[in-house]
Design a protein around this nucleic acid. Structure first.
Lengths: 157, 157
DNA sequence: GCTGAAAACCAAACAAG
DNA sequence: CTTGTTTGGTTTTCAGC
């Protein structure tokens, strides 16, 4: 996992696209004071280097009918089963994030469900049936107050 | 927070753009079998309805120099200070997510830091100095195994 | 709500410095 | 690493259905 050195223009390009993935390259070019072709090549390079992972439309989960957001901390029966368990968790469509963590539990997942009944089914039929999972601890998110991308401004190199 | 009724085409449009925010509208149009102008109008409507919140380039935090990811559960001195505390948390650039939660603590934040020393400074100088915060409990994410947008396929209306 | 067409605009690739 | 140019595709708007 090698770090690429990003110069000021790279960071400026990323900053704009992090806020709006559909911002035209030519508009970025005008903001940065270089040609569109240069922006295009820099973005391609950032993509190939793995700095850029993709782009996403951000939708309001509530508007899509997902009224329940929760974090679940999962404790494994056996640490050996980590990789296999993750592969099973990946198949649970409600889960949007998965971390290996320190502290209480071994895995932390974030998920969205339609309602509490759906959450219950997801926990009991989706998560607890996975071999290797011993216990879960669920924390409901009453409100997702804000969500944003990592701010790259305060790395001044 | 009224739910808009999304038909099959709306969901198809969103599904494509959630995977790739820069997918050309005309390509979506071809996949959906309707004109580009219709796609354009539907997306504008979804935007105005608040279903679409924006779009983001997804960057690898590690590549940007953020080697440490953590979740911090925050307990307030006084529940009255909730709103004010959130406004202060919003000013901490390292924080990318903020929830009101049930269970252990009142607020859960997710953040990225450059290293453990930076995390320590963020907790002590950034978070614990905020009026109204009593205690914090930090959970380091050893690895962010995956991260994706909510899968809208399993809502079949 | 959709369409097709027009005008303005953009992405991508190129040779060249 | 940059630029200007070119080609084909795209966005956006609008009248009309």
């Amino acid at each position: 996992m090698v770090k690429t050195s990003l110069d000021a223009i790279d960071r400026k390009i990323l900053k704009y696209l992090i806020k709006n993935a559909r911002m035209p390259f030519l508009e970025i070019a005008r903001e940065c004071g270089i040609s569109g072709a240069a922006i295009h090549q820099r973005i391609r390079k950032l993509d190939e280097a793995g700095v850029i992972l993709g782009s996403r439309l951000i939708v309001d989960p509530k508007m899509m009918g997902f009224d329940v957001c929760a974090h679940i901390s999962i404790t494994l029966k056996d640490p050996q089963l980590l990789k296999k368990t993750v592969e099973e968790l990946r198949k649970v469509p409600e889960i949007v994030e998965c971390h290996f963590i320190t502290g209480n539990g071994n895995i932390l997942v974030k998920l969205y469900c339609v309602d509490n009944e759906h959450l219950m089914r997801t926990i009991f039929d989706g998560i607890l049936r996975i071999q290797g999972i011993a216990t879960t601890e669920t924390n409901i998110s009453l409100q997702e107050v804000f969500q944003r991308e990592v701010n790259i401004d305060f790395i001044e190199e």
